[in-house]
Design a protein around this nucleic acid. Structure first.
Lengths: 189, 189
DNA sequence: GCACTGATGTCAGTTACTGTCATCGCGTAC
DNA sequence: GTACGCGATGACAGTAACTGACATCAGTGC
């Protein structure tokens, strides 16, 4: 008999999502989460840097999708084309990774709390920097790459919000294309 | 004789900036800040919602500059033209408000700490939403306005970073123009 | 069998933040 | 000029996030 059940991080994340959905983020203590997952509070903090981080598990997968698409793109593409490829890969990855209902539940929790929105913005900025670095590696000038990275995240965030609000009746990839097109339209008007 | 010295918020902010610069954000306790400002810890939290907020005092002025420029702009301007006007007003306001050295010192403190960067991103997102709302009030379609607001903040943040890194030898307004121009260039390439 | 590793439990401690009540200078009404 | 209320503060107790140090114990390699 094993001394402890494996998969503590997953159990903790699930317990946290349930409790946040039931009582809200602030009304849930880390001790509550740990108890439901069958571990101690100290173990929670061994797996997650802080209470908020438990909701941002696996964002590195999304980052890999973005960066990989840029790195693997054929030669001779413009910055905006590289960004489009990255967004498409990210949209596909997000739709496959956890499923639509999970994304929606998670979004509802985050939207209900300022501290969580703050963390999400930090993660989004991290993605933007990763895209920027990938673009620089492809020869895009740093100042240009930074703006392109921010632009990519603006389009992705806008598309994601519409996706969630639409009840997922729309395809995320289509929404990303629309957002990119709108951005182009704004800049050239 | 007054029972307490006036201007507690200002004294607290100055004490916090000094201590953060000397020891760093995490190594400074709220009790330290309060002691240097000559008040108690409890008074600190009466003026600032949390320890980080003390560094973000007066961002509403910047927001007013952005929003006012959009609201007061002449009729018939495109979304990108309204955004440009807002950015110009913001750049001017920032250069006049506190001075360059203050902006640089503050930026150094924030750059050295993740939690503070997180808060800054939240403030920036708040500005983006304010710009979005002002654009909607001017008749821009919501989805378009959201992207334009994010675009504005991307340009402003990029220009601000270059301004700080350049040692302020360059004019912020010029850098904002360059960033806007680069954005247009990316979108149309 | 035995040392070693790795995930966990235990426990004490710091600090951010909050709720509540007391204090007291100052202006205002009367 | 005195009573009254207001507003900013102090005092103090309490909660919960997070950290460091040490103990525990199943499995693993030798």
């Amino acid at each position: 008999m094993a001394r402890w059940q494996p998969g503590a991080p997953d159990r903790l994340q699930q317990a946290a999502m349930e409790l946040f959905a039931e009582r809200g983020f602030e009304a849930t203590t880390v001790a509550d989460i740990a108890a439901r997952a069958g571990v101690t509070e100290r173990t929670f903090f061994r797996h997650f840097a802080d209470k908020r981080e438990v909701l941002f598990f696996g964002q590195d997968l999304l980052q890999s999708a973005f960066v990989g698409a840029i790195t693997d793109a054929p030669e001779g593409m413009s910055a905006i084309a590289l960004v489009s490829a990255a967004l498409e890969a990210g949209a596909k990855g997000l739709q496959e990774a956890r499923g639509q209902s999970h994304a929606r539940a998670r979004d509802a929790i985050i939207s209900a709390n300022h501290a969580l929105q703050e963390r999400e913005l930090l993660k989004l900025a991290g993605l933007a920097r990763a895209v920027t670095a990938a673009l620089v590696a492809r020869g895009v000038a740093p100042a240009r790459a930074r703006l392109a990275g921010d632009l990519a995240m603006a389009a992705f965030a806008a598309a994601f919000q519409q996706w969630v609000e639409s009840g997922q009746t729309r395809d995320l990839t289509d929404l990303v294309h629309e957002a990119t097109s709108t951005l182009r339209d704004i800049a050239t008007s």
